[in-house]
Computed example of a mutant assay.
Amino acid sequence: MNLETIAAGLPLTEAKKVLILLHGRGAGANDILSLTQYLNVSDFAWIAPQADNHTWYPYSFLAPLEQNEPSLSNALETLAQIVSELDKNGIKKENIYFLGFSQGACLTLEFTTRNAAKYGGIVAFTGGLIGDKVYAEHYTGNFDQTPVFIGTSDPDFHVPVERVNETEILLQKMGADVTKKIYPNMGHTINQDEIDWVNKLIFSSK
């Protein structure tokens, strides 16, 4: 995988920290990259893979897992390859950050929880763990106090608050430092309060 083709921000050869951004269904890499102008990530390299046909998997994230195969496994493998390539470039997991919106948020949470480690931070704008239920046996590792932000609307047409709550509980059991914010009738979007929280919790200068 040639990371240079999907990278922006600081050159990978110069960056000490990397933000992996995952777009939502029907959107693209450039859409999610536009968020970086609101985040304190000017000293990061940004990596934004593009899903085939603008979708990471075909059905709802709440569908039985087999219905979203092989697309889901392919999407998870894409992320595994990116993390592996970053490791070869000398970027440790504690300097890798993840951010996703909607379908990209679900994929972000699914990948990082299946591969829990001390990451720089994880941001899920409207998402939860993938499947017709939460399959606790699929998730291994320990987040070692990785800061995680999950924000969502109540209600949200695509992501039930119940799944967000279940996701929070599982991540906390696996050692994540989770901040969850639920906004009444926000709609399927990202609001300024969420941006402020992630800049404070995850992208503050350390």
Rank of each mutant, 00 (worst) to 15 (best):
Q103N: 12
L33N: 04
L62P: 00
G131H: 03
L99C: 14
M186E: 07
D52G: 02
F61I: 00
P155T: 11
T167P: 01
P155Y: 06
L62H: 00
G104F: 12
N115P: 09
N40H: 04
L72D: 07
R163V: 02
M1L: 05
K93W: 11
A124D: 11
N199V: 08
P147Y: 06
D156A: 08
P147D: 14
A80M: 08
D52C: 01
N142A: 14
Q103E: 15
Y183M: 09
F61K: 00
T113I: 10
F149W: 04
K88H: 13
A75I: 13
K88C: 06
I182N: 03
F157M: 14
V41G: 02
T5F: 03
D87Q: 15
E162H: 13
F101Y: 15
P64H: 01
E85D: 15
N191G: 12
L35W: 11
A8E: 12
T78G: 04
A136F: 03
M1W: 00
I6N: 04
I202F: 10
L22D: 06
L62K: 05
L170N: 09
G151S: 13
E137C: 02
L79T: 07
I122W: 11
G104S: 13
W56Y: 06
N89Y: 12
L3W: 06
L129F: 10
F111T: 05
E166H: 07
L72M: 03
S73V: 05
D156W: 00
N30W: 02
C106P: 09
N95P: 08
H158P: 00
T36W: 00
D43G: 00
Q145T: 13
V178Y: 10
H54P: 00
K200D: 13
L10R: 13
Y183P: 01
P11S: 07
Q81A: 06
S84C: 08
L12R: 01
E14T: 08
V134I: 15
E194M: 14
A15G: 09
Y57V: 03
A75V: 07
T112E: 11
L22K: 05
A176C: 13
A176W: 12
A15W: 06
F143H: 08
P184W: 03
K206Q: 12
V123H: 07
F44T: 03
E14S: 14
L72S: 08
I96H: 12
D154N: 15
S34Y: 03
G121P: 09
G151C: 08
T189K: 15
N95K: 15
L107A: 13
G24W: 04
V159E: 02
H188S: 10
N2K: 02
H23C: 02
G175S: 11
L107S: 11
